[in-house]
Amino acid sequence: MPETFLFATEVALNGLMAGVMYSLVALGFVLIFKASGIFNYAQGVMALFAAMTLVGIQQGQVPFAHAINATFGTDIHNFGWQAPALLAILLTVGVMIALAWAVNRYIFRHLVNQEPIILFMATIGLAYFLEGIADLMWGSEIKRLDVGLPQGINTWIDETTFTIFGYGFFIDNLDIVAAIIAALLVAGLVAFSQYTKQGRALRAVADDHQAALSVGISLNFIWVLVWSIAGFVALVAGIMWGAKSGVQFSLSLIALKALPVLMLGGFTSIPGAIVGGLIIGVGEKLFEFCFGIGQCFGGFINLGGATENWFAYVLALAFLVFRPQGLFGEKIIERV
């Protein structure tokens, strides 16, 4: 088999895996947009906040230690205990639920019936606030995130593909775990929305707020619920991305990778977030391989690399031309 084809296949597989990671971020956007029509600019920062909180709890860090020490002249940094990963995750979920409640109680409850642009701007404010408070609570250091996830090359895939093709494919164990978790997450979300009372209520609110209100569904409850779920999804994304790079400010920028996924998959579809992520992941990686670094067609086109960031958006725009609502988005015509 030609070497270039094998290399391209390996790149495409890694693109699929990268796409899953993008989808994890995009899912949070979709959940909130679907239920409340809010494009949550703060979703990336929520992933950062969740991951920082997780590591802080796990390492027994005293929140706001720097501010406390500066104010009271104390020298406290750590509680002196290390929390097990599972307990830390559960406690972080609790924090994200509290955050969801606070966001709705103090921000969005006061913005009911406002224009979407006002709600969007409120999430920009929320993003900057969360960024600042996360720094204040847990500090700006880069923290190692270790919840026992496997990392590094999957030797089984490497050896098996080597036996078959004479070339071993690289697939990161962390990406495989991310794919499994994403599948479970989507299955769980679909099951929740189809088979539970709260899930059906959530779908009703997504379809028509007024009608849902008229049958006695509490909008407040549903919004807290959906922000909590989005917070949980942000935690999962934060763990996966944080395991790669350490937990640091840049985690908030992963939202940039989710935007083309949303444009392509649609803002209201959970399967769209997954399929969109996969298309973007494979598309950008193959384009980089073939034309970014000129590995296809004898290096006929070589753009010098670093094409992934912009090509993802080109790909999404190309899809938008033919399906403005995205691949799986709802077609809404507000004017003729």
Binding site: F7, E10, N14, G15, I254, F289, Q295, N309
Partner: peptide, 21 residues
């Protein structure tokens, strides 16, 4: 050989797959 990584550099899989190749 020159391999560029775009800001901020959170996603570098294709770069390192290429290095592996």
């Amino acid at each position: 050989s020159q391999l560029a990584v775009d800001h901020p550099g959170q996603e570098q899989r294709s770069t390192w797959v290429q290095i592996r190749q």
